Amino acid sequence: MMDELNFAQKQRLAYIDFKLYFTGMLTRSEIVGHFELGLAAATRDIKLYRELSSDNMEYDNVEKKYFITKKFKPLFEHDARRTLIKLANNISDGFDAIGDTSFPIESPSPLNVPNIDIIAKLSQAIIHNKPINVIYTSLSSGSGARELVPHSIVDNGLRWHLRAFDRKTKSFRDFVLTRITKVTILPQIPDSDESKLEDHQWMRIVPLQIIPHPNNVEYPTAIQLDFGMEDGMLEVNVRAAMAGYLLRRWNVDCSEIGTLAGPEYQLFLRNTQTLYGAENLAIAPGYQA
């Protein structure tokens, strides 16, 4: 039956599938608003989706919404990397197809790709503000169960992290997505001190003043062009929790007077004092508290 549908129908069904999988719920008005359809047309799309996947959703008469069921199996294949990019940019079309056009663009091969079912459960928990129980494997303590209250999924430039309150250590931490092997959404309501607003490292914005390296770059104009610097400087506002990742990714020399040598260090952090109190600075090149 799927082969008999046209592209527009498949796109609307993919949207329904995406909304259920990654938010756990769907309303007719969302379909109407997203595709500029009438209510009758949206109703037909939902009916068609239910004919193709009868166990994927159920209607709640009180909330007037369709909710994902425990028997849910995605009707479409959702690529993990593309889905994370969609979630990061609030794109919810659900459709991974890019047509027949081949673009002459290459990107680095990813070394780790998170499990799509894990991404879906985490996304649902964050949207509905629910704590989770996970099986997590760390480098220091191996595999074990943890209770977390997640609030964001983060791309640190090399891999994807979950930012969450860890009930074991009673602190906000980063958890690598690929090390999470099981997620169970808990029915509780998190305490106020577990909310994103209490994650001070996340809420604090740090201004980074980045300039061409004073010792390693012979022609600083080239670096200014590379990074679109104005008046010889690039100012980047970043969350304190993310500063270390960004500085490592771009090999920004964070020593006080630019002492790191080597062709990889083309950038220098002019205002190192702004990093005081930020986390993850052990990975910031050359930084000393």
Rank of each mutant, 00 (worst) to 15 (best):
N112R: 10
H128N: 13
I118V: 06
T101V: 13
E106T: 14
I116Y: 06
P114Q: 07
P114A: 08
P131R: 09
N129F: 10
P114D: 08
S123W: 00
V113H: 02
S140H: 08
S109M: 09
S140R: 12
E106Q: 13
I116H: 04
A125W: 02
D96G: 03
I126M: 03
I98R: 15
G142R: 06
I135L: 14
I127A: 11
S140L: 10
P114L: 05
I135H: 12
P108H: 09
S109N: 09
P110S: 07
S141G: 08
L139K: 13
L111A: 10
I132S: 01
D96Q: 05
I116Q: 03
P104Q: 00
Q124M: 07
N115Q: 07
I135S: 10
D117E: 14
S141E: 15
S123Q: 01
S102E: 15
H128A: 12
I132D: 00
T101S: 11
N129E: 12
V113W: 03
N112L: 09
N129R: 12
N112A: 10
V134R: 02
G94F: 03
T101W: 13
G142E: 07
S143P: 05
N129Q: 13
T137Q: 12
E106H: 10
I132T: 02
P131M: 08
D117S: 14
A97T: 11
I135Q: 13
E106Y: 09
I118C: 05
S143C: 05
S140K: 12
N129D: 11
F95V: 14
K121A: 05
V134E: 01
D117H: 13
S102H: 15
I126N: 00
N115E: 10
S138H: 11
D96P: 05
P131H: 06
E106I: 15
G94Q: 02
S109P: 06
K121G: 01
A97D: 13
P131N: 06
Q124A: 02
Q124V: 10
G94Y: 00
D96M: 07
T101P: 08
I135C: 12
V113L: 04
H128Q: 11
I98W: 14
G94H: 00
L111H: 11
D96H: 10
D117T: 13
N112H: 08
P131Y: 07
N115G: 05
G142C: 06
S102V: 15
Q124S: 04
T101D: 12
P114K: 03
I119C: 03
L122I: 04
N115I: 04
F95S: 13
H128L: 09
T101A: 12
N115C: 08
S140M: 10
I127D: 11
G142K: 07
G94T: 00
N133H: 11
D93N: 15
S102A: 15
I132K: 02
D117I: 08
P110W: 05
S123R: 01
F95L: 14
I105V: 14
G94L: 00
F95M: 15
H128S: 14
K121C: 04
P108S: 07
